[in-house]
Design a protein around this nucleic acid. Structure first.
Lengths: 227, 227, 227, 227
DNA sequence: GCTTAATCGAGACGGTACGTCCCGTCTTGAC
DNA sequence: GTCAAGACGGGACGTACCGTCTCGATTAAGC
């Protein structure tokens, strides 16, 4: 039977020093182990999915003792966090087609590629299906803001080209592109087609042009019609 | 929220008995146990959260044998989904304000209430954080389509009032309203404010009016600008 | 995995009226059900062994509701008791060769046949491996004394033929024949060969002739040598 | 019981570790856990009897995880057998009175003490009522042969003293002493009195002297009379 | 290069929850 | 009114992993 393990709060160890390895033992072993374990984590995610991810399996695949993982990461969640963050760092593509709509569309398609990719899809599910620890939530916010930072120039170019209202809330536009795609993936459990990506981009563009995301609170257009 | 009717889902429990409903004992016991267990599930979720939900605890709280739960639901995931489906059906409110924008806005706010409610928030997280079994995915789709069925009239009224393009894809509009809210809740791990709900409604309305969700494939307006 | 069920004390029903079926319901159904269930019990014992005997399987095999068995026998142990007693009634053969040694030998061989027979072996194991309820112990005594009653004439003939000491304790001789065979079967878990049977008979005969089983307490021959 | 030496088995635990003893941690933990669990098993047997013995209770009483018991013993039956073997070895007393009859009598009485003791009686019932797995049967044989090894010198001394026929089958004599006592205990469910023990010893001695257990097949005395 | 303490792999451990199995009771509808 | 069919509450089972711990064997820091 499937997943009967749950995300347990965390461990009793001191919080999260997996990052700075400098002042303890600068030897290359530390780094080598880190790489091996993170790679093993990703591989295991692909093979077994999030629900089937076992610390023991990661340890075995990484040629590492189980205790080492608990010593360095402190638990399954923190390991996942680190693996995903590590993975996501280099997998973002920011388009620049010259037009707002074109950029949004390409960006939406790149999100779609991430969700449908075998590796990254599992990773996404891992991160966003992992319950709601404060720690995990923090990771989620960090994950999003690091990606938002990448795309923001895309919207800012449109602003400077006067394609969209001057006081558009940049982040809100970005959110609007990803939302329907993640929604399809996580909530609807429907395949995320390229049409869906294009639609998401088009809807975001239309709403932006309509001024829905203007940050000045005065006269939000949608309010005209509301109660 | 001045004057408008709210259609509540009610407890007409017809969809989706988890087991073959044909040759089941018509006696009240079946139904009584079902109610007790689903209620116990919800109560346990509130007390212990998703990660702390134990089948045995649900059984005890429901005054039911553990085996009964496994016999009727087949596992934790299916139980959760059923509990949530049951819960959501009774808590769905479909607005009817007379205007498309107003209806969308109220609908968005009702979604927001569900996500931020202490009970229903846990429930939602439970369902959409439960991994990706084909079976669970099927239940997610059912969950969504049962809710979509409730809201569809809302969009159809707008169609008949000629507020939106005739060939608008109704389901796509519905999706567009929920997407940013679930996205905020599950992916961004940010609070889902009322402004966010209003924004989601406004964006969906704007995109709909712009014809983004017209089902006829000819000349999707957003494509004019794309690559 | 083997037998994780244990002999539980019994049930809360009134004690053991499975035997006399006369004054309750003389109708043929009662008797027919009794036969069917007892036969099913024996058959199940053969197929599944004592440890694998399930009331449910007996009920199914006997074409009877599980509740019927609990109503009439009150539990697994009492059912077994009844089945074995029923079975053992006709399966005893008392030899008469004319000589004490020959009679003992044949009797020992008949015991051996019972222990090695597929049906009766399982039954024996069922009865003597069933723990130590007062009820079961009572059955054991009854089982033994009913068989002892059958063989006693054998020894008495030897007495009247003056083959063995006049004051020989008849039951003790009988015990002495069966003991090594049951011992081999239950305790040593070794095959009970025909030689073993002959040996048991010979040893009992020798000890009897030596006067070991004389009931007069004076001058037990073996005590001459003891401390 | 005037003057004679008793050789007690001691706790030299060498025979029959349930798992491969070669590459085991030499640290005291293994042994400590083994002791704790076996002791807990015995204690639980005394408190709850064989039928009430729960693996979980043993684990709790031994301060040990349930899984540890399953890992090391593989199940309740094997645990029981090991506990009994362990117990019996330390409680075996091999007499040496100088005479064959006296030795047999003391040995029989020591068996009787084991069967009637509150602890050991439960243990014996546990082992010989545990069904008939090949594995359990193997352990029964081992149990017997380890005890037989202890007593064999007793018979051999009688041989060297020319008290009994030269070609006597030593093991058969040993069997003959225990058989009536176990028989009374397990099969007849009658109290095992001291007289019964003396009788068993006397019968075995008489049969041995009569040459019944001579291993040379020629002219077994009992066969003179047989068919 | 040699020592010495940190760190590692291996994996057994105490513990918790799992999902299964079967007991003996209870309910229901058919005969 | 009694039966078969079988769902039910209960509770032990044996398994699976968790995160901790102990053990020698390795390794790298500091001499």
């Amino acid at each position: 039977m499937s997943e009967h393990r749950l995300v347990t709060g965390g461990s009793k160890r001191s919080p999260a020093q997996p990052i700075d390895t400098a002042h303890i033992r600068p030897g290359g072993r530390t780094a080598r182990i880190r790489r091996a374990v993170l790679q093993a984590t990703v591989d295991e995610l692909i093979d077994s999915g999030y629900a089937g991810l076992r610390v023991e399996a990661v340890a075995a695949r990484g040629g590492v003792g189980k205790a080492t993982i608990y010593r360095r990461w402190g638990g399954r969640d923190r390991l996942l966090v680190d693996a995903v963050e590590d993975f996501a760092i280099e997998h973002a593509e920011v388009p620049d087609t010259g037009s707002f709509d074109g950029d949004l569309q390409l960006w939406a398609r790149s999100i779609r590629r991430m969700l449908t990719g075998p590796v990254s899809g599992q990773l996404v599910r891992a991160v966003f299906g992992a319950g709601s620890t404060p720690e995990i939530d923090e990771l989620r916010r960090r994950f999003w803001s690091s990606r938002a930072r990448l795309v923001r120039p895309l919207v800012e170019r449109a602003l400077s080209r006067r394609e969209i209202p001057t006081d558009t809330d940049v982040d809100e536009v970005i959110r609007q592109v990803g939302a329907p795609l993640y929604y399809r993936f996580l909530v609807l459990a429907e395949p995320v087609s390229e049409q869906a990506a294009d639609l998401a981009a088009a809807a975001a563009a239309a709403a932006t042009r309509a001024g829905v995301f203007r940050s000045t609170p005065t006269a939000a257009p949608s309010s005209r019609h509301s109660l």
